[in-house]
Structure formats: C-alpha cells, structure tokens
C-alpha cells in the first residue's frame, strides 16, 4: 500500500477521519488490517494488552453488533423493518451479520453503530497519542521546554505604575496613577524622570564594561579543560 493510503488509515485511528474515509475503511480489507495493527501497536506501547489477546477485534465488534437488537440502531427509522427481518437479526442470521466486506449500503442500520464503536476507539487512540507525547515532555527537564512566548506576556505589575520601556515609548497611565490624583503634567514629569534614569543606566552599562573588564581580568585566564 502506498504512503498516502497509510496516512488516511492512521488518521482514522486518531479519530480525524472524514465520513468518506470511514466508508472506505469499511470496504478495504487491507486498510482494516492496518487499522487494527495501529491500534495493537498503540495498546502495546501503552502496555494495555489484555492477558488473552483477542486479535480479531473487528470481527468481535461485528459479532457484538449482530447480537445487539437492530431496533436501537439509528437510521432504522427511515427504513421499515419487517418482523421477519427483525427475528432474523435476533436469531443471529448470518445474512444480517455486518461482515466488513459487506457494502454499508446493504445494511445501513447495522453499519451505523459499528462506526459509533469506531469513533470511540478513535477517541481512545487520540487520547493515547496525547498521553505518549505528554510522557515524552515530562522526561525533558521542564525549563528546557520553556518557549519564548512567556516573554510576550505582560507581567503583573508591582507597585502602582505602568511598565516603562526605553524603546516602546510612553508608558500608559494606569488607573491607579490617575486615582492618586496626579495631573497629566505631573505624570509626564514622572515618566520623563524614570526614562532618564533608565537611559542613563543603559548608557552606564556600555561605559562600565571597561571597569568591569579590568576587575575581572585581574586573575589570569586559565586554560580550558578538555
């Protein structure tokens, strides 16, 4: 099977399948086997294999559906069921068994619950995927994972004023500032002074490197260890 074909099967496993894919799956024996294998792999990784491995899952699901009274299946409403047919189903007449090679159009009433089951398994598969990714993340020290995003979050402010930044320009007047009864001119004066201090601090960083450097290079540089 080609790569593309595998992809849609795995998307069915992950619960991301379209209606069309599901219909396709119900008819494609090859894909069904693959689908089953994917789930088996998933179960193995999670260590959820039952003591007795019942590998033919689709068949047992189909059997279960078969035993289920068809009357509960949606879609039955639009197709009247004769009492004969109903009794056939209850008695387990092979004709009404949803073998996966039977076209869904032949027995839409029984196919629908099968897909419901599929849906549940698909959800389980996607949960497992999340769980696996989660475990991988826990193995890595949490701080390595820290993305640059938090920097973009605004820090809650301490004190009563707004954030100042040398380059982003005017800090916004906060409501606390206003409530302290400062006039606009006073606020501007305040901002200007804060900016002056910050700018001077930044400038000093440039100028003081010399002083810092002299201080630091007093001790001779040791050769690196290999």
């Amino acid at each position: 099977m080609d790569k593309l074909g595998q992809e849609w099967v795995s998307s069915v496993v992950d619960g991301e399948a379209s209606e069309q894919d599901l219909a396709h799956l119900s008819q494609d024996k090859d894909a069904q086997e693959k689908w089953q294998n994917y789930h088996l792999i998933g179960d193995t990784i999670r260590g959820e294999l039952p003591p007795a491995l019942s590998l033919d899952l689709t068949q047992s699901i189909a059997d279960a559906i078969e035993k289920e009274p068809s009357i509960v299946a949606p879609g039955h409403a639009n197709k009247p069921v004769s009492s004969d047919e109903l009794s056939d189903v209850v008695e387990g007449n092979p004709a009404s068994v949803v073998g996966l090679d039977i076209a869904p159009t032949a027995k839409p009433s029984n196919v629908v619950p099968l897909f419901k089951q599929l849906g549940q398994y698909a959800i389980a598969a996607s949960v497992a995927l999340v769980a696996v990714i989660g475990v991988q993340n826990y193995n890595v020290p949490a701080d390595i994972e820290s993305s640059p995003l938090p920097v973009l979050n605004t820090r809650p402010l301490i004190g009563s004023a707004s954030p100042v930044s040398l380059q982003t320009g005017q800090p916004k007047a906060t409501s606390q500032n206003a409530s302290q009864g400062y006039s606009e001119a006073q606020l501007n004066e305040q901002r200007r002074r804060i900016n002056t201090y910050i700018q001077d601090h930044m400038l000093q960083q440039k100028l003081n490197t010399a002083a810092l450097h002299q201080h630091k290079s007093e001790k001779a540089q040791e050769e690196p260890q290999k």
Partner: peptide, 16 residues
C-alpha cells in the same frame, strides 16, 4: 516635584 513610584517592573526584568 512628583514622587516616583516605589517600585516599577518592566517585562524584561528591568526594575526601578
């Protein structure tokens, strides 16, 4: 003339 705020923090960790 206007007292400066006691503490002020910018997002990059720079404080006054």
């Amino acid at each position: 003339e206007t007292p400066l705020p006691n503490e002020l923090v910018a997002t990059n960790g720079l404080s006054i």
